[in-house]
Computed example of a mutant assay.
Amino acid sequence: MSAQRKDDHVRLAIEQQDTPRGINQFDEVSFVHHALAGIDRPDVSLATSFAGISWPVPIYINAMTGGSAKTGVINRDLAVAARETGVPIASGSMNAYFKDPSCAGTFSVLRENNPDGFVMANVNATATVENVWRAIELIRADALQIHVNTAQETAMPEGDRSFSAWVGQIEKIAAAVDVPVIVKEVGNGLSRQTVETLKDLGVAVADVSGRGGTDFARIENGRRELGEYAFLHGWGQSAPACLLDAQGAGLPLLASGGVRSPLDVARALALGANGVGASGGFLRTLLDGGVDALISQLTTWLDQLAALQTMLGARTPADLRRCDVLIQGSLRSFCADRGIETGPLARRSSSTETLHETTGSTR
Score class of each variant (00 low, 15 high):
296 S>H: 10
288 D>M: 14
348 R>H: 12
311 M>G: 02
304 Q>G: 02
287 L>R: 15
336 A>N: 13
304 Q>Y: 07
349 S>E: 06
316 T>G: 03
296 S>Q: 07
333 S>I: 13
289 G>A: 06
301 W>I: 02
309 Q>F: 09
343 G>M: 10
298 L>N: 00
297 Q>G: 01
322 R>H: 11
321 R>E: 14
311 M>I: 10
288 D>G: 08
283 L>A: 05
289 G>M: 09
336 A>S: 08
342 T>S: 12
337 D>M: 12
344 P>Y: 14
299 T>M: 02
333 S>H: 13
352 T>R: 09
340 I>M: 14
337 D>S: 09
293 A>R: 13
296 S>L: 07
328 Q>R: 15
287 L>M: 15
339 G>E: 12
352 T>V: 13
315 R>Y: 11
326 L>Y: 06
315 R>D: 01
338 R>Q: 15
305 L>H: 05
344 P>Q: 11
329 G>C: 08
331 L>Q: 02
348 R>M: 15
341 E>L: 15
336 A>K: 12
339 G>H: 10
344 P>T: 08
302 L>F: 00
318 A>P: 00
323 C>W: 06
320 L>V: 02
321 R>P: 00
328 Q>D: 14
350 S>C: 05
292 D>I: 00
353 E>W: 09
290 G>R: 12
287 L>P: 01
342 T>M: 15
327 I>P: 02
287 L>Q: 08
347 R>V: 13
326 L>W: 05
312 L>E: 02
291 V>H: 06
313 G>P: 13
320 L>N: 00
318 A>I: 12
321 R>F: 03
318 A>H: 05
335 C>Y: 08
300 T>F: 11
344 P>N: 08
316 T>W: 03
318 A>E: 08
302 L>Q: 05
330 S>F: 00
318 A>F: 04
287 L>F: 06
306 A>D: 01
300 T>Y: 07
305 L>Q: 04
287 L>D: 04
296 S>K: 14
286 L>T: 02
285 T>Y: 07
321 R>V: 02
291 V>A: 04
